[in-house]
């Protein structure tokens, strides 16, 4: 009985995802901020993040007939973005003589950001310092560690979903996340 109910739920989810994909303008409107945020957090490069976001939706449009609804639309789009980012990083490492960081983001770019629930200048400064510490630590992570970290702590995805998105075992995802957190913890300890 439970199995039948589970199958029905899966079919319903799949149909919903297929229906959602039919209106592609709406898909772009809803998911573009999320994809851009993921790429921006991972690459810290405005132009590259924008370009890859556009390419992600172009690829999704051309491959929309291949989407079977096995995963959520969000997971599918994130998977495309992860693959594009991988290719981008690979080609950037080959183009070592070229200008690779066109519009690099800096921690100073969040100078207009005011954390929630903080009003005093001291508490705002403390919060920005903490963000700066995490920021610099994230830049030191390997590509896999950074991807897993961003998907978990910026996009708030479940570990199983991350594993499915980037095509890794759950244990490998946990291992990358553990190492990433160890580096961040260490850097934050040094900052004190």
């Amino acid at each position: 009985m439970e199995e039948i109910a589970g199958n029905e739920l899966a079919i319903e989810k799949r149909e919903q995802a297929m229906l959602e994909l039919a209106d592609f303008d709406e898909v772009v409107r809803v998911y573009r901020p999320r994809i851009l945020r993921f790429l921006l957090s991972s690459l810290t490069d405005r132009d590259a993040a924008e370009a890859l976001t556009q390419e992600c939706f172009m690829k999704a449009w051309s491959a929309r007939h291949q989407f079977r609804g096995d995963s959520s639309l969000s997971t599918w789009l994130t998977r495309i973005a992860v693959n594009l980012m991988r290719d981008h990083l690979r080609s950037r490492s080959l183009r070592f003589w070229q200008k690779t960081r066109g519009a690099a983001l800096d921690v100073m770019d969040i100078s207009d950001w005011i954390p929630d629930g903080r009003s005093s200048p001291e508490s705002i400064t403390v919060a920005r310092d903490r963000v700066a510490a995490v920021w610099s630590a994230v830049k030191e992570l390997s590509a896999h560690q950074r991807t897993v970290f961003v998907l978990r702590f910026v996009e708030e995805m479940e570990l199983e979903e991350i594993a499915s998105t980037i095509g890794m075992n759950l244990s490998t995802v946990k291992s990358h996340l553990y190492r990433a957190l160890a580096v961040i913890r260490e850097r934050m300890g040094e900052e004190k």
């Binding site: 969040i110 929630d116 919060a127 963000v131 995490v134 994230v138 702590f153 910026v154 961040i184």
Partner: peptide, 8 residues
């Protein structure tokens, strides 16, 4: 810190 980073 992670929560602040996410917010930023």
């Amino acid at each position: 810190a992670l929560s602040l980073y996410r917010s930023a």
